[in-house]
Design a protein around this nucleic acid. Structure first.
Lengths: 199, 199
DNA sequence: TCATTAAAATGAGCGTGATCATTTTATCTT
DNA sequence: AAGATAAAATGATCACGCTCATTTTAATGA
């Protein structure tokens, strides 16, 4: 029993490592599930016993990193940072963790954390979104902000957040410094909006 | 020769009308290209002689409406509206035209006008984006705005714009009034940002 | 030790969007 | 009117993500 469970984890890891390697080198769309299975040394069908879809498999890789990034943030944050600094730290912590996967972040997040559907067919994406938004809500609450309806702040935030990730994923400026600039603007915009709605 | 060209247009129209009908009733993803071809009375392969992909076919429908909406805007706008009003009029004119297609706008725009890729495999989407952004740039220029880098204002705008379309496409509030509220906030945010960057 | 049985792996097969060699149709030439 | 030529339609076929009936593996109990 114990052996079996460990073996299962090992297989899941083999699949994840194979997918990581191929997505990074060949790209997300150009990697087939048959290739991943072959690289992992299993049958095609077995892959789907572990991950219900190619999308979910890819998102599992990213979800883990985003989650780690959020933990980095919780570890680093201090109580005397202001609202904007808190948000900046959260987002940049996630992005730092995502760096190795930058090449295939786009097509995966586009469908799993889409602006266009609150519920996707990818649980890993849905929970990543929910957890990130909860972290943001906590930050807002800690700073006593938000004078606007929740659906407005959530929609605005998610648009700006995805915009940052999208920009970053194809940012070819040195050290992705343009992404930093965009983050500054986006976060300031959001801060102003929820603290001073009439502006 | 003339007859042939007219016949071609007629076939293209048959395909568009068949697709429109099916996308609206069955949904975008649940409609197969074989169904569309059957409904249009042609072979499956023929469909792809007219539209290189299902995505492009769907986007052709939306691109036409968005383009019409933009023309509506050009017709209605007056020189003494302020910047925010201009933007509001542009976006709401497009949305009005898109109303009949609301049910399948999401999955199509998500991939054809994605935040995550400037160039998609859908020319109709690429040019719709380019033309809309040009209209916005013209509005900005007409009002003598923009004190921030172009890549920042473009990224910010596109995030907010897609956020509005995404929200609208699933907005179940009466008369989509929540969408109007989101538009107000989004546009004000954008206006403030490009006119007074330090805020 | 060897049945029993539940879990896990397997790969043939499905429906999809898309391709392309072939066939059909329509126009032009003589 | 018949032949030549180009354009357009066709549907068998492909590769893909994914499913599922079957086979294989391994833990359990007599």
């Amino acid at each position: 029993m114990r052996i079996t469970k460990e073996a299962k984890k090992k297989t899941a890891q083999k699949i994840l490592r194979a997918a990581e390697k191929l997505f990074t080198s060949v790209g997300y769309k150009d990697t087939t599930t048959r290739q991943i299975a072959e690289q992992a040394g299993i049958a095609t069908g077995t892959l789907f016993n572990y991950f219900p879809s190619k999308e979910t498999l890819a998102m599992s890789l990213l979800a883990e990193e985003i989650s780690q990034g959020r933990e980095d943030y919780f570890r680093r944050r201090s109580d005397d940072e202001d609202f904007s600094e808190d948000l900046f730290l959260l987002i940049s912590s996630e992005i730092r963790r995502l760096k190795p996967y930058r090449k295939f972040v786009g097509p995966v997040l586009e469908s799993t954390m889409s602006l266009f559907s609150k519920e996707t067919s990818c649980p890993a994406g849905d929970s990543t979104r929910a957890e990130h938004l909860q972290a943001v809500r906590d930050i807002i609450h800690n700073h006593g902000y938000s004078k606007i309806p929740d659906y407005i702040s959530t929609s605005l935030y998610w648009s700006l957040y995805l915009g940052i990730l999208a920009f970053w994923s194809t940012d070819e400026s040195r050290n992705q410094e343009e992404t930093l600039a965009l983050m500054d603007y986006s976060i300031n915009v959001f801060t102003q909006t929820i603290s001073n709605p009439t502006l």
